[in-house]
Design a protein around this nucleic acid. Structure first.
Lengths: 209, 209
DNA sequence: TTATGTGAAGAGTTTCACAGCA
DNA sequence: TGCTGTGAAACTCTTCACATAA
């Protein structure tokens, strides 16, 4: 069963970090082996879902036994390409952008996703730093994306010019986006955009109030 | 076709705010009527999806014509229960919490979702305000949830005690949650939890880098 | 003629249940 | 015996295509 011979559904990819979090939080000496049932229970899933998800990428468990926690963690890291540094940029050094940088540095310190550059249009902010990360002018986007080899971009600016800014990033080599921008953005095939628009989330939650 | 006689899929509910955003951004004098095709194009959807989604709630369009922009907007607001004030709380008055309050007040000023109370455990912060909203002690959670009639809670604190905190909110009457907490949280049927864990989103995006 | 509303078909995802291996 | 890996079944969601109404 070759990895990615069958196209893996996005929804499976989005569950892998959840498995990773469970495995990270385990005491590997006390619990060197975990079953799909135990893993599932900690996430509120069914065990079959866990086994099915993992089966897209190969055979990781031992029948009658379970999964080795340490090696399963390494396999999932490898699948997600978290076994090498990935350089991340962030456009919009406002309150939200600054909070995201801080949040990321707190929660991600042992992960290879590093925010290496911030971008803003405000000339007051350009040249400053937030949490040790330099702020560059948005006019330098292409130059710095290439220089830093940025492959992932967080979008935390107001909706103005969102599509054009994203297009420029893609031209310069960015492959994936996490967008907090309150506007619809289109990306070509092969580029991944995940939206995290807080206003939209809250509005849909209102239905369940 | 009675509203919610058939159970509406969550995924349909999550698209309604997108339709709402398009309708809000239109000039209603220049464009008093919109077709499902025009609406879809602005979001990168297919027109059939738009019509199917709306059909869960009733008949809003005119055959051969389209939808009246103003009345469709009002209908969607009503469906999402955005036609009356909804009081929202936020636990965790740190950088992310403060940024979310600011972001919300900027992007939501014409929406009836109002953040009415913040909660934190830091005694330095209790009694202070952020963007005009009072910070209360987490120990007062139940009391203030009832007093303010809070039905929706944003979770922006570190993972410690997340499940217990959510359970307390539910006991006090909270119906839906938007969680930025990096931990798995379980909620009973009838309660809605939407996760927005930035670390998880970035980790899954790494796969596409 | 145009564009909606909707069954039906198609695609995608989850759950089941069991063969097979340790 | 116990738990994985996996086809098949069940279920859900999207897309299609057309009857219908303005």
């Amino acid at each position: 069963m070759e990895e990615r011979l069958r196209k893996v559904p996005d929804i499976v990819i989005r569950r892998l970090p959840l498995y990773l979090r469970v495995l990270d939080n385990l005491d590997h000496l006390e619990m060197p082996i975990i079953s799909s049932e135990q893993l599932a229970q900690r996430l509120g899933f069914l065990s079959g879902q866990v086994r099915k998800d993992l089966s897209y990428f190969g055979v990781f468990g031992k029948q009658g036994v379970g999964y080795q926690t340490v090696s399963l963690r390494e396999e999932i890291r490898r699948i997600l390409k978290l076994n090498r540094e990935i350089r991340v940029g962030l456009i919009g050094a406002g309150n939200l952008g600054a909070a995201l940088v801080g949040y990321h540095q707190k929660n991600q310190e042992h992960r290879p996703l590093e925010i290496v550059a911030l971008f803003d249009v405000d000339s007051q902010k350009i040249g400053q730093q937030i949490a040790g990360v330099d702020i560059y002018a948005v006019s330098e986007l292409e130059k710095q994306v290439v220089a830093f080899q940025i492959k992932m971009m967080i979008l935390a600016f107001p909706a103005v010019d969102a599509q054009m800014t994203v297009d420029r990033c893609i031209q310069a080599g960015v492959k994936s986006f996490l967008s907090f921008v309150p506007a619809s953005i289109k990306v070509p095939p092969g580029i991944k955009l995940q939206t995290a628009d807080v206003s939209l989330e809250l509005q849909s939650l209102a239905y369940y109030s």
